[in-house]
Amino acid sequence: MVHTNTMEGSLFEPTLYIVKGMCILDSDGNRILAKYYDKDVLTTAKEQKAFEKNLFNKTHRANAEIIMLEGLTCVYKSNVDLFFYVMGSSHENELILQSVLNALYESVSILLRRNVEKRVLLENLDAVMLAFDEICDGGVILDSDPGSVVARAALRPDDVPLAEQTVAQVLQSAKEQLKWSLLK
């Protein structure tokens, strides 16, 4: 595969293999989901987890959107107790990576009905795994439109639209949202 950065000059390499990795970490920096796509970058689970720890330590306090770390450009975004990261080569168009992060965050947010927090994510882990798979295929951006990613990944047949939810469900989700808005 055309993964490696063979280009000598400083032009961007004309390749579709742009995403080196994506991950979601919890508020302790532990991996909830992570995928690495380049067979030359962070190949063992040990290396990956060490990188994730380092990345988390450098980013969890500063909400600075982007960081260059260990030869990778990482864009990130957090909410409540979840941290979303997209990694690319340091010779890559940052704005393309940013668009992938937006797709990841927005898709997950829609899937979790805007309750972007660890507990709800774990309850819907299968759908989030499918969303991961719909956004990036082996390092190639497959789809970056959250609407269509969710249409392809959210397939739970008994998922009822908001209008048909029971009063209890609506109350529960309202309570959750209130809880976090107070804690922020």
Binding site: M1, V2, L16, D137, G138, V140, L142, D143, S148, R152
Partner: peptide, 17 residues
């Protein structure tokens, strides 16, 4: 269907190696 077309194209790209 764009999903089908994209899936085939991206798979072709992987297979081209």
């Amino acid at each position: 269907n764009p999903a089908v077309s994209s899936a085939a194209l991206v798979s072709a790209l992987h297979l081209s190696s």
